[in-house]
């Protein structure tokens, strides 16, 4: 199974890497998808979300062929070839978040959850993404990890939270996840993989109140949280995250301190096994971040806000 995931990861990387070579292949897939779309058109009423792209589409009506293509792709909720609107992104994120919460519930501590939402929302305000609503949650597991789903659904585990020492460290962890959302890392993976999935079977896993269109598209959404992103996506999230935390007024060394702590954990600790299958080793992340930061943050004076850091009982 792991092998399969890795093959998928490798093919995704090469897909993304060979832009020129990938184009023809992409065209081929596009044609196949269009065939599929036209076949299913009468039976699938389409959600056409209102987006800020609407004027562009209206404008495109003057030149019918490209506009037609775009609408075709949207009619199945498959915006695989055009990019996702914020509404679609949120819809996908909700599905993934709901699936993940099916594996692990939230910690039953409203003060904790509120505190994390306040810190996370403050950091997210500096990210420049205002077209989505941000949601933060602490998952009730001793596993040490954090997750981000598209559309602004951000999670960290109780096991990770317990290791934090101050608000700047929390802000650093959340900022890394917020960066995954703003850089659309998971969305890019989904876009590539679900394009392939769309050609195959679209068997619906029935679940109460879940979104069948999106579920068809992405399969079990929680699974993508176990999928490894390109390591450069993780390094990028560290770079963007450390800056986001600093822009929010925190000292920038929160995220590095957490990475330091994780680098010092015993390797056999089962609480980090999933983290290590999905992320580069913390020591590699520290080294990459160190190269990027060097002396650039020397003059940043932020706060660690240790005094009001919420401790889990």
């Amino acid at each position: 199974m792991k092998l399969k995931l890795m093959i998928l990861a490798v093919s995704l990387v090469s897909f993304a890497g060979g832009a020129a070579g990938g184009f023809d292949f992409g065209k081929l897939l596009e044609d196949r998808v269009k065939e599929e779309l036209n076949k299913d058109k009468p039976t699938q009423p389409a959600p056409v979300p209102p987006t800020d792209q609407a004027p562009a589409e209206a404008q495109g009506a003057a030149s019918p062929p490209p506009a037609k293509q775009k609408i075709d792709a949207r009619q199945l909720g498959l915006t695989l070839l055009t990019g996702y609107s914020p509404e679609e992104e949120t819809r996908i994120g909700r599905q993934i978040a709901g699936d993940l919460l099916g594996a692990v519930p939230l910690v039953r501590d409203d003060k904790l959850q509120n505190y994390v939402n306040l810190v996370g929302s403050w950091v997210a305000l500096q990210s420049g993404r205002k077209d989505i609503t941000w949601h933060f949650g602490v998952l009730d597991t001793e596993d040490i990890n954090a997750f981000a789903a598209p559309g602004g659904y951000v999670f960290l585990t109780k096991g990770l939270y317990r290791r934090l020492n101050n608000e700047a460290e929390l802000a650093g962890v959340l900022a890394h996840e917020i960066a995954h959302v703003t850089q659309k890392h998971h969305l890019k993976v989904l876009k590539e993989s679900s394009l392939i999935g769309a050609l195959g079977q679209a068997a619906s896993k029935k679940a109460k109140d879940s979104d069948p269109v999106v579920q068809n598209l992405i399969g079990n959404g929680a699974e993508i949280m176990a999928r490894k992103l390109d390591k450069n996506a993780e390094f990028e999230a560290d770079r963007v995250g450390i800056v986001l935390a600093a822009r929010s007024g925190y000292e920038p060394w929160g995220l590095p301190a957490v990475l330091q702590d994780m680098a010092g954990l015993p390797a056999k600790d089962s609480r980090t096994s999933l983290l290590y299958t999905t992320h580069p080793h913390p020591a590699d992340r520290l080294a990459a971040l160190g190269e990027a930061v060097n002396g650039r943050l020397d003059s940043v004076r932020g706060k660690d806000v240790a005094s009001r850091f919420y401790r889990i009982k």
């Binding site: 599905q95 699936d99 409203d110 509120n114 585990t157 176990a226």
Partner: peptide, 25 residues
């Protein structure tokens, strides 16, 4: 620890999602 299998087997939990969305500030 949490593993891939847990995530693969997970069933959409609408109640928890509603709880999370209500926590937004």
């Amino acid at each position: 620890g949490l593993n891939e299998e847990d995530l693969k087997q997970a069933k959409f939990n609408a109640e928890e999602l509603a709880r999370m969305e209500a926590l937004s500030v």
